[in-house]
Structures are given as C-alpha cells and as structure tokens.
Write a protein that binds this DNA or RNA. Structure first.
Length: 679
RNA sequence: GGCGAGGUAGCUCAGUUGGUUAGAGCGCCGGAUUCAUAACCCGGAGGUCGAGAGUUCAAAUCUCUCUCUCGCUACCA
C-alpha cells in the first residue's frame, strides 16, 4: 500500500483545430488531473502526459480556408489550449505537441520498426483525386452529402452533423474541398495494419488481463463500457486499417515509396504520448524508458468513449508489435456530457468553452471542477445545466464546505485570538468524530484508486457535513459562557477537520485546498499543533447569483446554432442531351412498408403510369409508411435497377433537402396524371 | 438489423455473489437554532426500481420478450 510506484498517466491529445469545452474537461482531463494529483500527494512518481494533436487534413483544410499555413493554425490553437489548461489548473508534467521534431522522429521510428518486422501490408486502392490540383484528396478534403443523415456538408471521414464515421466513397455527390470539382478515382498505394492477426492475444489480454502468459492487469477493474466495446469490436472481426494518407502535413512515411504520404493521425497521435515523455525526460533529467518500458510502471489512458478503440486495441497492437513497451493497465473512458438538454456540438456552437468560462467566472476554476466531477459521465451520459451548476455551488460548496470552514475559523478568532486551542478530555462522541476523519480520508483514497471520482468527491464532502453536525451538536457558542475548556476541545477538533478537508480536497479542488491551508497557516497540512496561530479568513466560495447563470443561458440560446450553411457550388455544366437522358415521371405511392432488414429504408410500390414497381428509398427516418401512401411524387424511372439491402429498387424518388438535412418530396403543385413527364 | 452501454425518488446518482419496511446528496415541506455567506442541525413527504412474462420460499438483482436513450456497425442511386 505505502510502497512508491511509477505511473505514466496520459490524457487524450486535444485536436489543435479548436478550443476546449467542458465536455472534454469532464470526460478526460479533469479525472486524469484528480488521479494524478492524488498519486503525487501519496509520493508516487508520476509522468502526466498530454499535448496537442496537430496533424490531419482538417488542419490543412482550415489553413487553406483562412489563408494561413498549417503551422500557423496549430501554433494558434496550441497556444489557446495550453493556456486554457494552465489557467484551469490541469497540471500536466508536460503539454507537448505532435508537430515537434522529437515526435516526428519517434513516430517515424515506430513506423520503420514495424515495417521491418513485416507488421504492415501494402494495398493499392482507388482514392479520390483532384485532377485540376493534381493531388489525392484526403478524406477530409472530400465534401458531400452524408448518406446517413443527408447533411450536405459531410466530410469523407466523418459527418459532423450526425457524427457518423464515413469513408469518402460513401458520400453522395462528392466534391473536392479545394477546387469544388468532382474528383475522380485513381489508384494509390498505402500501408495497412492488419489487426485481425492480433485478435487472439488481444482477447486474452482484455478478457483475462493476461499478456504473454503473465497477469498484466485486472479486467475486473476496467469499466464495463470499455470492455464491452472492445469485445464487440473483436467479436465482429478486426479489419485491416490503412495507416498512411496522401497528404503533405504530418509525419512523412519514412520508407521507400512513401513520397508525398504521411502517417494517418490515429497512428501518429498516441505515439505522441511517448515523444512527449521523451521531451519531458530531457527537460527534467529523467530516463523516459522508465516510464514506458519498465513493467512495474503503470500506464493509464484517460479518454472519452469515442477513443476506446484506439487506446484499447490499436495502440496496444502498435506497442506490442514494437516490443519492450508496456501496455496500458487501464483505460478509464468516460461517456459524454450533454449541455442543457442537447449534445455538445462544436460546429453548432452549442458548448461552454473553457476559455470563455474562465473569462466569465474569474477565479472559479474549482467551482467548475466540483460541478463537473459531481456530474462526471462515468457510467452513462450526463448533463450539465447552468441552474444545476448554480445549485451545486451555492448549496454544497458555499453552504456546507465554505460555511463550516468559516464558522470554525471565525469562532477560533473570536474566542482564542486565532490560536489553535488545546485538546482537552475527549468524549465518546468526539472519539468517533476523530475516527471518522480517518475513515473518510481512507474512503476517498480507495474510491479514487478505483476511478470513482464522483463518489470520491461526495465522500470528501461528508467530512464538511461531519464538521457542521459536530458544531451543531456541541454548540460551542453556548458553552463558551459556562465551559471554556470544553470549547477549546471542540474548536481544536473542528480545526483538525478543516485541515483534513484541505488534504482530501487537494486532488479535486487544488486552489481551494491551498487557500484553506493558507487560512490555517499550515502549508504542510500536517495535523495542527496546539497554540498554532491561524490567519484571518476570507470566504472560501462566493455564491453564484441568478444573473450570472441567466446570462450564460441567454448566451447559449442567442448564439448562432445552425452550422454555417452554404449552398453547394453548382455542378459541372451539362448539355440538354445529358438532361433528357433522365426520365423523370410523376407517380403515386400505392403501398409503403419498412424495409425488413434496415432502419432507414422504406420499401414502396409506386404507380408510374406505365407500370407498378418497387422502389426502396432511404427516407424511413423522415416519413412513416402510412404518411406517404397516396402521395404523388417525382421518380427517376430509367435509373438502372439496383439491389438495396436485398430488395431490387427500380428507380429513385426525388427528394429536396433543407439545411437541417430534412427531406421533402418533390411533388406536383396540383394533381397530375401518373406517368406525367417532368422536364 | 447486429453489437455495446444505459433506463432506480423532482434533479444527479449508489445498489456487491438474488434475502428483512429500495438508499445517498441536492431540491421540496415542517421543526429547531443563531457561531456562520437566511447558512448549519433535526424530522417528513416522495419510487408498482422502463413494460410484460418466467425461474425461486424470495428479484431492482437471474432468464426470455418488448420498449426508450446514447454509442459503434450495416443498408442509404
């Protein structure tokens, strides 16, 4: 228990493409910071590693848009993010960045090493290519309509509207984000990581915690959501994933044939933990290998649930392939934090930005830390509301914690000139109170080591509750008239509780704990000695006024929520002949039912005037079957039939789409005979 | 559709291997108190534990079916 261990703790690398919001903090950085502060307070040797993830096409794309270099973009964001972390009090050993030289070297070395070991395959495939710009288009450089939600501005790797993971060829009407042209498919060769080769050992490692025949971790200590997600991935069969991209921003592929190609961000980013550790070791005269290669060192990754597969499957594969490296002993992934009833969305600007909070609520880092830990999405998605923030600060921090400290310190000054009075005879009840201080402190520690930060913080608050109850039970303000010696004992114990509060809250509320230690004039936080002079207190916490939270709610609701919606550029010019090739008719939907094997598809029969045919269409999320029967619609009838999810669809129903991605039928303005031509 | 995680008091959440009247904090109502930022302390109300069926002497807890939320995944000309 008391032996000192070495820990490498990482927190997900923030992508240097935008600022941080409270969801990031609650999900990864705050729990990591609490854990690290706790470990350090116990004297363990901890490297707390984080940094900006600065590669990837989203950054080059944005650079292009803003007329800057990618380096300028990441420099700006890195500075903002680093400052926000620092101001908020996330206490990294190092906050590094993946654009650094040491990272490029480290990542390249990993690639070369794995390449030499034959860990990769090379595959040639067709990728979109912009002929005018003479370059392959990375996934992010392709914009089109999301096949899932019909959002118009989806990227080739992801739709930011519905969050779906996509591949560029999934997009409807793909266009090049650089030129607006329609890209063509062209062959290119990339390196792939065949993950299926690793299924057997991964399964044993995840299920039993056994690696190479040795017990490496205890799976019972892993969260259910993490193990469940991983099992789901492995049981479905791991795919080969490409780990290089045609792009000029990132870590250059260091082997023959790699010209013009870089490592894909998810390959290079986790290696950033290692390169950051190397830099930190150089700066602090340490040996980085102690933190990554010594099997006695624990490696823990704090992440959000979107990152589980990378940290619990892909990165371990990379580490194991390289050899000598430790695998994580735990990956405590959190779920997501919602905000005022909706998902946090960067693109819709539905978020509480960390740097804005710090500006709007100066010196209230700990208030936010407290609230975010109270509602940490540890087992399920949770919700932040400003009213709840206010209630928790006012009813818990101010009323229970701050108030107890204040009354104790005020009474000490009032009765004993601010000197810690002597501990006289201790009653049975008081003996119990003293024992409780120890018990609660131990409980808090146990809960932290189990990554139950929410419960741990609640337990820490019970110490303040204990203090308030003790004062209410003993009533020193009455006793002072009759039994000053007893009052000395009461305030002595109360002051020790205050001191214990400054200890147990150190990981959770570091600024408050320091402030409290200052009131007590006790920076070491060892037990207070009789006669010790304490300082004049201020208030530990201020109440949050209605106006302050109302202003925040107002700010959220008045901000522009709709994404910047630009109509897509016109497609290439076509001839009249091109147009007349399409045979579009008016028809009436006769029957409609849900596709038996798909959620988003409706199977319909339509009277086209010339025949009655079956059409399958992806509109089930917009229309119920009974709503569409009898509707007159426009149909492209000479489209080649195609099997969709097992049913042959003969034609396509035309739909119009608005900015929200909602669909509407293109119907004649008055009733037209079925088979009527649209031209 | 498949898979994973959830659905427990108004809110945020606990409930271990099934076992007496289902818990905590906050909110609410009532009482007491004045050292304290009208704060603290005591008491109370409030839940058919998502729905239904089954196993059992006994189920929030095990099994099955259904339903809703979140995520991954498939279909989307």
């Amino acid at each position: 228990m008391s032996s000192k261990k070495r820990y490498t703790i990482t927190a997900a690398l923030p992508y240097a493409n935008g600022p941080l919001h409270i969801g990031h903090i609650a999900g990864a950085y705050l729990p990591a910071d609490i854990y690290v502060r706790y470990l350090k307070s116990k004297g363990h040797d901890v490297a707390f590693i984080c940094g900006s993830d600065e590669h990837g096409a989203a950054i080059t794309l944005r650079a292009k848009k803003e007329g800057k270099t990618p380096q300028q973009i990441v420099d700006e964001n890195h500075t903002i993010i680093e400052k926000a972390f620092k101001d908020f009090g996330i206490n990294f050993s190092i906050y590094h960045r993946t654009s650094s030289k040491i990272h490029h070297e480290t990542a390249a070395e990993f690639f070369t090493d794995l390449h030499q070991k034959g860990a990769f395959t090379q595959e040639t495939s067709e990728q979109f290519y912009d002929e005018e710009q003479q370059q392959f288009l990375a996934d992010r450089y392709i914009v089109g309509t999301c096949p899932k939600c019909s959002f118009d501005g989806a990227y080739g790797d992801q739709c930011e509207k519905c969050g779906s993971t996509l591949s560029p060829t999934d997009l409807i009407n793909p266009t090049s984000a650089i030129s607006g042209n329609t890209p063509v498919l062209k062959e290119t060769t990339h390196w792939y990581l065949p993950m299926d080769r690793h299924e057997v050992w991964l399964k044993e490692w995840l299920d039993k915690g056994v690696l190479d025949g040795k017990q490496q971790h205890d799976p019972l200590k892993w969260k259910k959501n993490v193990l469940g997600q991983c099992r789901s991935w492995i049981d479905n069969g791991l795919q080969s994933r490409s780990i290089t991209r045609d792009l000029d921003w990132g870590v250059k592929v260091p082997v023959e044939g790699g010209e013009g190609k870089v490592l894909y961000v998810w390959f290079d980013a986790p290696i950033g933990y290692i390169s950051a550790t190397k830099q930190w070791a150089l700066d602090n005269n340490k040996n980085w290998e102690d933190y990554w290669k010594n099997p006695a060192t624990e490696l823990v990754h704090f992440i959000g649930k979107d990152n589980i597969v990378f940290h619990a499957i892909i990165f371990p594969i990379i580490l194991k392939l390289h050899g000598e490296f430790n695998l994580p002993t735990n990956v405590p992934a959190n779920e997501f934090l919602n905000l005022e009833g909706n998902k946090i969305s960067t693109s819709r600007n539905w978020a509480v930005w960390l740097h804005e909070y710090l500006a709007d609520f100066p010196d209230k880092q700990d208030e936010l830390r407290y609230v975010l830990t109270s509602i940490a999405p540890e087992t399920k998605d949770s919700e932040f509301t400003w009213k709840d923030y206010q209630a928790r600060v006012n009813n818990e921090l101010v009323a229970i914690f701050g108030n107890f400290v204040n009354r104790t310190v005020v009474l000490t000054h009032k009765y004993f000139e601010g000197k810690v009075p002597v501990l006289n005879t201790v009653s049975v009840e008081e003996q119990k109170v003293l024992e409780q201080i120890t018990t609660i402190s131990k409980n808090v520690e146990n809960l932290i080591t189990q990554f139950k930060f929410r419960d741990a913080q609640t337990e820490a608050m019970t110490l303040a509750r204990l203090g308030n109850k003790y004062l209410a039970d003993t009533e020193p303000w009455k006793l002072i008239k009759t039994d000053e010696e007893k009052v000395k004992t009461i305030l002595h114990i109360s002051l020790q509780i205050c001191n214990a509060l400054s200890v147990v809250f150190t990981p959770f509320l570091p600024k408050t704990a320091t402030k409290l230690a200052r009131f007590l004039n006790n920076p070491t936080r060892e037990a207070l000695k009789t006669g010790h002079q304490i300082n004049q207190p201020e208030l530990l916490f201020q109440k949050i006024e209605d106006e302050a939270v109302d202003a925040q709610i107002e700010k959220l609701s008045t901000r522009e929520h709709a994404p910047m919606q630009k109509s897509k550029p016109m497609k290439e010019e076509i001839t009249f002949d091109d147009f007349t090739k399409m045979d579009i008719r008016i028809g009436t939907i006769l029957t409609a039912e849900k596709h038996p094997d798909a959620d988003k598809l409706l199977k319909m029969t339509v009277d086209t005037g010339i025949d009655t045919r079956t059409i399958v269409s992806g509109i089930a999320e917009h229309y119920a079957p009974e709503d569409v029967i009898g509707k007159q619609v426009s149909i492209l009838i000479n489209l080649a039939p195609r099997k969709i999810r097992g049913i042959v669809s003969q034609g396509m129903i035309l739909m119009a789409e608005n900015n929200e991605g909602n669909l509407a039928f293109v119907s004649p303005e008055r009733v037209i005979d079925n088979g009527g031509e649209v031209r």
